[in-house]
């Protein structure tokens, strides 16, 4: 079942469930990652892993990564496979719902971007823009479990 959990992103506390996103991603992970020929590069983890981010910056990075996936990634991941497209839709619509919850923290000023998170987000965007848009989007989607693991 979709177990809601309390997530702590610095001063921001949000009750969310990642169960359905993880189930959707697990169902298409192999397919998506097989479409990513450039194995030596990472969008989210280059040069530093997300795990190096300090607690106060977690909310800002999570909030902006949700924006990143909604605005830049999902729309460029359309495939010829109906099953994959439907699962991407499920993940994308779930992201919208999670982003709404995080926005509450943003509005309560619990989601301030420090220097480190700003730098990290710049790096992620630079990694993304270093590839052609479809490859970058597909690689980012293939790395979704890196984001989910880091959040949980």
């Amino acid at each position: 079942t979709a177990g809601n959990k309390i997530f702590h992103f610095g001063a921001c506390r949000v009750s969310m469930s990642m169960t359905e996103i993880r189930a959707g991603f697990t169902a298409i992970k192999t397919n998506i990652q097989s479409r990513d020929p450039i194995r030596s590069l990472s969008i989210l983890s280059h040069p530093h892993s997300l795990h190096k981010v300090k607690s106060p910056d977690r909310c800002c990075i999570t909030h902006h990564l949700f924006d990143f996936y909604v605005d830049k990634v999902f729309k460029h991941c359309k495939t010829e496979d109906s099953f994959v497209n439907r699962k991407i839709s499920s993940i994308a619509n779930s992201f919208l719902s999670l982003r709404r919850k995080l926005r509450q923290c943003h509005e309560q000023n619990n989601c301030v971007c420090g220097e480190e998170s700003t730098e990290k987000l710049k790096q992620i965007l630079a990694n993304y823009e270093g590839l052609n848009v479809t490859s970058a989007a597909m690689k980012s989607l293939g790395e979704l479990d890196i984001l989910l693991d880091w959040m949980e």
Binding site: V70, K75, R86, S89, L96
Partner: peptide, 18 residues
């Protein structure tokens, strides 16, 4: 079908249910 994402971020696209 069409979710909120398709309406607001993917040109109001529709997804077939195979």
């Amino acid at each position: 079908f069409q979710g909120e994402y398709e309406r607001d971020y993917a040109n109001e696209s529709w997804i077939p249910i195979s």
